[in-house]
Simulated assay, not measured.
Amino acid sequence: MMIPVRRLAMNTVASMLITGGVLMSPSALASDYPPAVEALPPIHIIQPDGVARSVSLADVFDHHGYACGPATVAFMAMQYALQNLYTENEIPRADDLLVLSHSPGGGVADVMDLLFSNGRPESRTLRPAGMRNAADSFEFQVMRKSTLQTVSIALDPALWPAGWFEIRDKRRAGTFTEADQAQLQSYQQQVTSTFPAKDLQTLFGSTEVRTVMGWGAIQSGELEAAVRAQR
C-alpha cells in the first residue's frame, strides 16, 4: 500500500482554520495518513509574525510532498524537546528557540522551516557542505533562549531501518533500481506508520534539561550566508 501524496498551501493564512485562537490547517481535521499520524498531537508555536499556529505531522507531510521518515523523526524530536522546555500552559515562541540539527535531510529541514517560518519558499533552509546522512545523525540540540535551558534529543540508531542510507547513496550514484525504489518506499512506510505510535522515550531515550552559559551570537541571515559562501 502506497502512502498518498498530498500538498497544501501552508504558507497562506487563507488555507488555515482558526480553532481556540490557534491557526490550524485543514489536514488537522481530515487526513489520509496512517491512524498513528492522525493521533499524534500537533505542535503549537507562535511564529515570527506573532500568529500562534498548530502544526501537525500531517501538515509536515503535506508541506514536504509525501509521508517522510526523517521528517517524522524531526517532528517527534521537537515534540520531545518542547515538552521538556515548556510547561503545558505555555505556547513556545519561534524567536525564543535555537535548534541545531546534525541531520541534513530535506524532511528534517522542512519540519523546522514549517515551525519557524510557516514554510515560506523564500525561507527554505540551505544544507551546508560536510554533513553526514546516517542513522546516528538524527540528533538535535534545542535551546530556550529566555531561560538558557537546553536539551539534546537523539534517535536510537537501532530503530532506524538497516539499509536505508545505502539505498539513498545508490540513488545519488545513479545505480538506483526499481527494486531499490520499492524497498525505500517500504522503509518510508515502516517509519511513518510505526514511529508516531511509539512513546517518545522509546525513540529518543531519557533526556536532561541543562542550563548553560553562552558567548557570541547568531545574527539573522548569518547561517544562510555562511552556507551560500560554501557553494
Rank of each mutant, 00 (worst) to 15 (best):
M2P: 03
I3A: 04
V5Q: 02
A9E: 07
V13T: 11
A14Q: 09
L17G: 00
V22Q: 08
V22L: 09
P34C: 02
V37W: 00
V37F: 02
E38K: 01
E38W: 03
A39E: 04
I46T: 15
P48M: 08
A58F: 00
D59F: 00
F61I: 01
H63G: 04
C68R: 00
C68N: 13
G69S: 12
T72H: 01
F75Q: 02
F75C: 06
M76N: 02
M76C: 07
A77V: 10
L85T: 06
L85D: 05
E90F: 08
L97A: 02
V99L: 12
S103G: 12
D110N: 15
D110E: 07
L114V: 10
L115S: 10
G119S: 11
R124W: 11
G130A: 06
G130C: 02
M131V: 10
M131T: 09
M131F: 13
N133P: 03
D136N: 15
Q141M: 13
K145E: 10
K145M: 11
T150L: 11
D156F: 12
P157K: 08
W160L: 07
K170I: 09
A173V: 05
T177F: 08
Q181H: 08
Q188A: 08
S193V: 04
T194R: 11
T194H: 11
F195W: 04
Q201G: 09
L203N: 12
V209P: 05
R210H: 12
T211Q: 14
M213A: 11
G216H: 06
A229W: 09
R231A: 14
